[in-house]
């Protein structure tokens, strides 16, 4: 370790360069697409990009950021999204208004989070395996409830385009992302809970010996993570006007990718909300740009996978380079 740290002292420039690689890459890629794909920079495309892809992944990834910051991971984000979406749709179809459906959906998400938290904080199971178990059970429950995966459509048009509402010229879902990001971001970076999460995520035994309650902190983290996913679940079902079983799992991998890309942006290599949002943007811009220059969905996935791998490689290379944090 000493040798690594020592060699890095002479190379602050390189490490700074590596740290800046993600913003630079995004700029380069945006520039490339705006030249290669004529429609890329058009308002219509940008807004559809942001609305259709960015919002959901961003909210889920924000929740994931907390789990990663606390030294864990949340594989059951999809389950929380789905359960919230299910509760939302069922409540609306049952004749309740948004006033009931939205809190109901949040409660459903929080239940998934509490289940995780109970396993992690109560039984001492590692977050990876605990949330993996939740994911399995969640899938099974959804299959049983939806007869093997049949979507449930929102019967009456109770949602006169919740997603189409704009305020101050900005669509509602984007305001939602902004709100969630602000709350989660400020607490993580400046809040007391954020510092406790950092301590638990960096060195759990020290946190314990300093009088922090590991249980309470992981409880809060996993419930918060699931709550963010529940918000995404509400947005999802209002966008597609239905509950589609197991649709939340699609976010898992990109959310994890975005969070870890975000750590590159931090001088200290810590998970952080602005970085996560940039990571989400990066993933979306690539997918959208590739679509516009005519690559089909399959090639998009190859390219995204390759790029994420590349960015992660840079991320960890830069962390090893940085002499002190």
């Amino acid at each position: 370790m000493t040798t690594l740290a020592a060699t890095a002292v002479s190379r602050p420039l390189l490490s700074r360069l590596l740290r800046g690689i993600l913003p630079l890459l995004i700029v380069a890629i945006v520039a490339f697409f705006s030249v290669a794909a004529p429609g890329f920079l058009s308002l219509g495309n940008l807004s559809s990009l942001v609305l259709n892809n960015f919002v959901l992944l961003a909210i889920v990834a924000i929740g994931m950021t907390w789990a990663v910051a606390a030294g864990g991971i949340d594989l059951s984000v999809g389950t929380a999204v789905d359960f919230a979406s299910l509760a939302f749709v069922v409540l609306l179809n049952g004749g309740y208004g948004l006033v009931v459906a939205i809190p109901g959906a949040l409660v459903a998400g929080a239940l998934v989070g509490s289940f995780n938290a109970g396993l992690i904080a109560g039984l001492g199971i590692t977050p990876f395996l605990a949330t993996l178990g939740t994911l399995f059970i969640g899938t099974s429950v959804q299959q049983l409830l939806s007869d093997g995966g049949q979507p449930i459509y929102i019967a009456q048009p109770v949602l006169p385009g919740l997603t189409a509402v704009t305020w101050l010229g900005m669509p509602l879902p984007l305001w939602l992302v902004l709100a969630v990001a602000t709350v989660y971001g400020v607490i993580l970076a400046r809040g007391r809970l954020g510092r406790e999460i950092l301590a638990v995520g960096t060195q759990v035994q020290l946190a314990r010996y300093s009088g922090l309650s590991i249980r309470q902190i992981s409880l809060k983290v996993f419930i918060a993570s699931a709550l963010a996913c529940a918000v995404a679940g509400i947005v999802l079902s209002s966008t597609v006007n239905a509950y589609v079983p197991m649709s939340g799992n699609a976010f898992l991998i990109n959310a994890i990718g975005a969070v870890f890309m975000g750590t590159t942006l931090s001088r200290t290599g810590r998970a952080n909300i602005p970085g996560t949002l940039l990571g989400v943007l990066f993933i979306n811009v690539i997918a959208n740009g590739l679509l516009l220059i005519g690559w089909n969905f399959y090639w998009q996935q190859v390219a995204t996978g390759g790029l994420i791998l590349l960015v992660l490689a840079f991320s960890f290379a830069s962390r090893r380079q940085s002499p002190s944090y």
């Binding site: 199971i125 178990g133 399995f136 059970i137 099974s140 299959q143």
Partner: peptide, 19 residues
Amino acid sequence: FWVNGVQGVLILLVVAMSS
């Protein structure tokens, strides 16, 4: 449909036990 759920419960049981 039960299979996934049983798998999930099994993992959790086993891991909780071994931890």
